[in-house]
Every structure is written in C-alpha cells, then in structure tokens.
Design a protein around this nucleic acid. Sequence first.
DNA 1: CATGAATGAGGTTTCATTCAT
DNA 2: AATGAATGAAACCTCATTCAT
Lengths: 204, 204, 204, 204
Amino acid sequence: MAFAGKTKHEVLSEFRTAEILEAARKVFAEKGFSEATVDEIAEAAGLAKGTLYLYFPSKKEIYLAALKNGVAELAEATRMNMEAAGGIRGKVHAFIQTRLEHVERNRDFFKIYHAEFGNLTHPLSVNESFRKLYRQQLDALEAILEKAAEGGEIRKTPAGAIASALYEMTRGLMLRRLLGWSGTTVEEDVETLNEFVWRGIGNS
Amino acid sequence: MAFAGKTKHEVLSEFRTAEILEAARKVFAEKGFSEATVDEIAEAAGLAKGTLYLYFPSKKEIYLAALKNGVAELAEATRMNMEAAGGIRGKVHAFIQTRLEHVERNRDFFKIYHAEFGNLTHPLSVNESFRKLYRQQLDALEAILEKAAEGGEIRKTPAGAIASALYEMTRGLMLRRLLGWSGTTVEEDVETLNEFVWRGIGNS
Amino acid sequence: MAFAGKTKHEVLSEFRTAEILEAARKVFAEKGFSEATVDEIAEAAGLAKGTLYLYFPSKKEIYLAALKNGVAELAEATRMNMEAAGGIRGKVHAFIQTRLEHVERNRDFFKIYHAEFGNLTHPLSVNESFRKLYRQQLDALEAILEKAAEGGEIRKTPAGAIASALYEMTRGLMLRRLLGWSGTTVEEDVETLNEFVWRGIGNS
Amino acid sequence: MAFAGKTKHEVLSEFRTAEILEAARKVFAEKGFSEATVDEIAEAAGLAKGTLYLYFPSKKEIYLAALKNGVAELAEATRMNMEAAGGIRGKVHAFIQTRLEHVERNRDFFKIYHAEFGNLTHPLSVNESFRKLYRQQLDALEAILEKAAEGGEIRKTPAGAIASALYEMTRGLMLRRLLGWSGTTVEEDVETLNEFVWRGIGNS
DNA sequence: CATGAATGAGGTTTCATTCAT
DNA sequence: AATGAATGAAACCTCATTCAT
C-alpha cells in the first residue's frame, strides 16, 4: 500500500496516525466508545492530548478511523479469498474461514466491530457508513447464493435470509471466541460451521 | 399476575414504573444508553426529572430495569414454548419462532437488547448479569442438542458451536427485521431458518 | 407560659409545633443545617413532610425556631439566676453554673447552638438575630463587670474583652462536655472555672 | 521554602493552587461551606470551573486544603513561639499573642476556622482530622500546664478544663475582633487576656 | 388537617476541544 | 510539530417546596 516518494511529512504523519489508531483500538475495545476518554487514548499512544487533534478532528473520527480501517481490511480479505475460491462451496468456506481466522489476530478491533453492530439500530449512531457496508456485504452474499441456486449448485432458498443467517452465525462464533467460551480451535470451528452450512444449503 | 388488594400506593407505583420503563425503552432504543439523557426519558414519560428518581435510583438502574424486564420475558417465553414442544425438531422450531415473533411486538426493547450484545466484550459494562444469562441460554441450547444427538435424533456435532450458531443466526434475522431489511413475513423467516437448521443438524 | 382558655386548635398546634421542633433539634444536632433534610425531620417527627409546612414556612424557619427556642430559654434562665444571685461573685458563678448545667439536659440543642456560633461571621448566614442576641449578652455581661469594677468589687479591667473571654471560656467547657472530653462532673467544672475567673478579675 | 530547580509545571501548579485557595478562602469565609458554590470560587479565582478540578478533585478537598493550610501554619507558629518562650508565663503569653496577631493577617481563614469549630459535634462532618488536631492542641496545652504546676510555677488546677478555657477564651477574643466588636488594639487584648489568665493560674 | 407524589431549580463534576507556548 | 493547561457546555442527581386528594 505504501509506496516510495513520500515526503518526510507524510511518513511521520502516517506513523503517528497508525500509532494513535492502535492505541485507540486498545482503549475502545476495553471500554467502548462512550466510556473511553481522549485522555486515555493519548496516554496509551504516548502522546499529548493536543497531538491527537492534529491528526484527527474529533474523538468520533478517531473511533471511525479505528473501525473503518479494520472493517475495510476484513471486507477486502474476505472478498479476495472468496473470489479466489472456486465454486460456491469454496466461497462459503472462504467466507467463514477468513473471518474466524481474522479474529485471532485482531481481538481489539473485533470488540469494537461487535459493539458497532449493537449500534446499528440507533439511527443517530456514530456511524452511518457502517450500516451501508454491512448491507453491501449481505447483498453480495445474497447475490452469490442466488447465482449458485440458479446454477443448481445449491438448493433454492430465500437467499436474503440465508445470507443474513450465514453472516450472523459466523459472527456468533467470532463472539464466542472473543469471550473465551470456545474450547475448540479455529480450524474446528471453521469445519463445524462449514459442514453445518453446507448441509443447510446443499441440494442433496 | 396483577391481583386485587393492592394499596393505592402500589397501584400508582406500578403504573408509574411501567410508564417510565416504556418511555425509557423508547429513548434508549433510539439513542443507546450513553447518548440518552434522563431529561429525554422524563419528557417522553411526561414526568419531571425528579419524579424518575422517586422510582429508580439512577439512570443505570432505569436502563437495567428496561432491559431485564424484556430479557426475562423473552427467555421465559422461549423456555416454555420449547418445553411444550415435542422432540428436538419441535424445540428448535419453537426457539426460532418464539424469538422472531417476539421482535415484532417489542421493537424498542429489541434495539436495547441488541445493543447490549455489543457490550458483552466490555468487562466493565453496564451489565454483568446479562452475560451470564446469555451464557445460560447457550448452555441450555447446547445441552438439548447433545441429548438429541445421543438419542440419535440428530447427527453428532460440536454442540457448543452449533448452539452459538443457532442462537446468533436467529438473532441475525431478528436484527434484519429490526432494520427493515426483510421483505418477508415472520412466518417465512421462521420456516426458512427452520429448514436450514434442520438440514444442518438432521441425521439424514 | 401556657395558660388556660386555649382553643382545641391552639392546643393541637402547639403540640405539633413542639413535636416538630424536638425532631428537628435531633436531626439538626446530628447533621447540621445543610446536611439535614426535611424528609429526615418529618420522619423523626413521625409526620408527613407536607405537614411540617403547615406549621413552618420553610426549613430555615424550623431551624430558627429550634434554635431561638432554646436560646431564649438559656438566656432567660441565665439572666434570672444572675439577678437572683447577690454580688458580682454570685452573678459570675450563676452565669457559669446555669450554662454548664443546661448543656447536660439539652445536648441536641447545644450542638445546634454551637454550630451557629460558627456561622456568626457569615453575614448572609441563616441568622441575623442570633448575632444580635449574642451581642446583647456580651454587653450585659460587660455592663455588670463595669459596674462591679466601679463599685470596687473587682479590679478594673477592659470589661468588653473580659466579658468575651468569660463567655467563651464557659462555652469552651460546654463544648468539651459535648465532645465527651471531660472526665469531670459539671460541678467540678463550674468550680474550676469560677475559681479561675474570680482570681482573674478579683481585686485581691 | 521555595527553592530553585522547580519545573515549569511545578511553578504553575503551585501558583494556581495558591490562587484557587485564596479565592476559596474568600468565598468560604463569606458563605460557609454549604452555601458557597464552586462557580463562585472559580469566578473569584478568575478561572473556569473546570480548571479548579484540575487542581482539586472536589469541592470538599478545596475546602479542606484551604482549612488545613492555615490550621497547620497557625499551629506551627504557636508551637514555635511557645517553645522559644521561657517559663510557663512566657509560653502562655506566646500562645495568646501568636493567635491573636494571626487573626489580623488572615481574616478570611479565621472565618473558616471558626466555622469548623461549629461542626465539631457533627460526627459525619467535613473533617475528622480537624477534631484530632484540636484535641492535640488541647492536650499539649494541658501537659504544659500540668508540668508547670508540678514545678510549682503555677497553682494546682484541673489542667484539662483550664486548657480548654484558655484555648476558648483566646478564640473568643479572636472572634470578637473578627466581628469588629473590639475597640481595642491586638496588643491591648493580648495584655488583658494575659493578665487575666496569669492571675487565674498564678500561685500568688 | 394531613398526606406524600410531583416538581424543577440548582449544584457538583466530567471531558471533548482549543490555543498559546 | 507537539504540548497540556484551560475552558465551559452538558450531564446526573438532590431536595426544599407545592398542591390535589
């Protein structure tokens, strides 16, 4: 993503931004948006409070950046892995696997991510674009399922509901891991879910 | 539940409490806990701010009451309907149906309910007992699935993960309805989910 | 003080008033004016809060009544006993004795009384008239001392300062008793103080 | 007391703290603890309300700091001057003189100081340590008197009561000056009191 | 007369944001 | 660019007082 030719200013700016976002993710993950204070984030980042405002215009923007950052990464990785996979079965497997594996490496981010789903129904919420992205992902999933059904790869189902179910059951297992309630490995969870879903939608 | 012989005080107290909780649910549903103000709740209830504090000791307690109230009701209804249903297939159907139908009649409550799941990973969150209850429900679901598997009613699966998946996919469809993204009736959603789950766990 | 010919109304009114003042004295003694609440007084009096407002227009007035009541009684008893006593020596003794003995029987009142001295320097304080009364008592004491000095009964002193000293040293021993720091009887305290004062002002 | 080598932060912090305490003393002196508002103190200090909270965690702590500050200073000055003075007569004189002179230079503080004596009998009062300090001073005074009596410098008296009387008569004259009721100079008051006390306890 | 539910002004405290250094 | 002291709006909560019953 990064490329040569950056000015010294740009390099520093990116470095600070990343530094702040990492600290922010840690604090927001622990406390949630409202309970977290800018002071805490500044301290976690080892910077003065005022410095944060050189890089972000508000607490809310820090939060959004910390969120979007990870969301885009996850969405992108998911999309790419699904594209690379052949056939509907591979795609579904990729979807589940990518997401579940991601959790392990980004626990702080996922706590924020989860919290944000809780805010989806507050219209005045921190985030309008989050809802859109969620919708896009569901729609994409739905489209894939519908196409597969048309091609006879899977049975005919109300694809929207199934997409939602697939998305959320995956998220459920992610949450379960986050809470430390899983006695299983990621691989096992992936297989369990994959098997379950496949039976659910397969046209056996 | 209500019975004669209540004092005037008790009647009024119950009435006010209900009045406040209804207003609170509306405001909390719209804004979430942190963004909601006690003033707004008071106004929504048509009462003065001080009056709320005659019935609840703090904003947090109002929130918890509004939450617990509905949570207990939902949990109880779900448990009863599952118990009444015969066989694992009936129980799973009852689980899905009870929950999805409940949403339609308690939209405000469900927004709060959903938001609280987002807080599950914040250890210092408003609510410790909520996490426990969630865990209990998952455990109960797991136990039912395991027993059914032992009895040969369904295939053998890692019951914990499946319970989580079942719980969350249902919650996903609830959220979908809440967001107005469903073009389907509750009955259709129930059947879709039921069919999907049953294929997923059945021992065909 | 009470006399026949009262209407039923007056009798009840006096009874309620006394009841309230006793409760008020107890609560104010324990908490001070600001920390005491009207609710507490009402509860201590076994009456509803609203009832208090039938007999007193405000919390402040309850306080003042509870205070003045006792202040007047103390001042009157002191004045009478001093008048009855012969000679300056007897008068001083009567002053000390009356006041110290009074403490034992009216501990609640004396806590309020003491607190009020602490407010003397707040011009906007609860009580303007209290300051006046204090001043009157000091002036009276001063006048007595001056007259005695003129008559050669005691030595010549700056009578104002001595009056103040006499008043406050007595109050000091009263406070000492209130705090439970006295290992002595009232009589002993009276004699100690009397001896001390007499040596201090006597014209030996 | 101040010395070089302080950081800029320390200098500012001390300056602000002093600034706030001076304003606080003025406001508390005028209104008492309960009637004073943080807003008033902030305004008197020429600072925003929030700024006070950068230096003190609560209104109560501001009050205590304003109080303790002066109390410690007075106690220390008194102790030192008494120690420096030779013989019991000198010590008593030093006690009276130090305290009375202190009033003139710290009128605001002394109003708070006096008010606090009024709270001594409220067990849940702002200040527990104040009571202890008062007790310590009385005990020290008592010890000095007892020792002098044993050495034959003064007559035998119940030293505790006399200590209390001495302390409070001094405080009485301090209050008298505070109220502007003294037509005399500090020196005259000191001499009057000294003479009075000395006759009272001397072994003539 | 008595009640106590209701009120709402007013107090303390927090914290996102600004800006002079 | 970085700082962190200062700000003040806004939130929660208390409690003296009122008034319909």
